[in-house]
């Protein structure tokens, strides 16, 4: 049990990092990684949505879809749940964190179609159909892995702003090169297993 939990945490954070290894959730990873502050905000919003989505989708899957033999509805029901949660986060942020709300801009509602969120819920029902705890843990730590990647990226991009980057590389080209180099670094974790 304990070993399984540690293994889930490590694989979700590092060895199977959603952004760097599985290539999920690239859109906000590139779009909101210009400043560390907004990157942290985005990471927290995604963590909240992914944790709740993992919990809700597991419950719906276990107690509605499996008993009624409706597994073919997984995608549409999961998207419904995720969209509802994102809408809730958006309202909450507009009320309590207006500056972060405007900094995230279009990327906040785009969490709805963030493939990392749908990805984690589908992986959960595939890998841990019987354990609520494991699903929730995997959801939370996969989101923290996403946060880790986006915050690291934002730190690097903040420093890149100060440097004299050749003109043809400025903006997105250098961001994509940076992302590629980070993916190489994360490949270093791929051999580990518990």
């Amino acid at each position: 049990m304990a070993i399984q939990i540690v293994s889930i945490i490590l694989s979700a954070l590092l060895t199977e990092n959603f952004v760097m290894v599985k290539f999920l959730g690239i859109c906000p990873f590139l779009g909101v990684s210009k400043k560390v502050e907004t990157a942290v905000g985005m990471g927290m919003a995604v963590t909240f949505v992914m944790a709740l989505a993992s919990a809700f989708t597991w419950i719906v899957n276990r107690f509605l879809l499996i008993p009624f033999d409706l597994l073919y509805l997984q995608t549409i029901v999961f998207i419904l749940i995720i969209a509802g949660l994102v809408q809730f986060v958006e309202m909450f942020m507009k009320k309590s964190m207006p500056s972060l709300y405007s900094a995230l801009g279009i990327y906040l509602p785009l969490i709805t179609t963030n493939c990392a969120v749908l990805g984690v819920t589908l992986l959960n029902v595939q890998n841990y159909p019987d354990s609520f705890i494991y699903s929730l843990l995997y959801g939370i730590f996969a989101a923290l892995g996403f946060t880790l990647a986006i915050v690291l990226m934002a730190g690097i991009r903040e420093n890149l702003d100060e440097d004299a980057v050749p003109e043809s590389f400025r903006g997105f080209p250098i961001a994509l090169i940076t992302a590629g180099l980070m993916a190489i670094a994360f490949m270093g974790f791929s051999g580990f297993s518990i």
């Binding site: 719906v60 509605l64 879809l65 009624f68 409706l70 029901v77």
Partner: peptide
């Protein structure tokens, strides 16, 4: 049943 489940959710 499918309509009820999706609609209910």
């Amino acid at each position: 049943i499918a309509v009820c489940v999706v609609g209910g959710t």
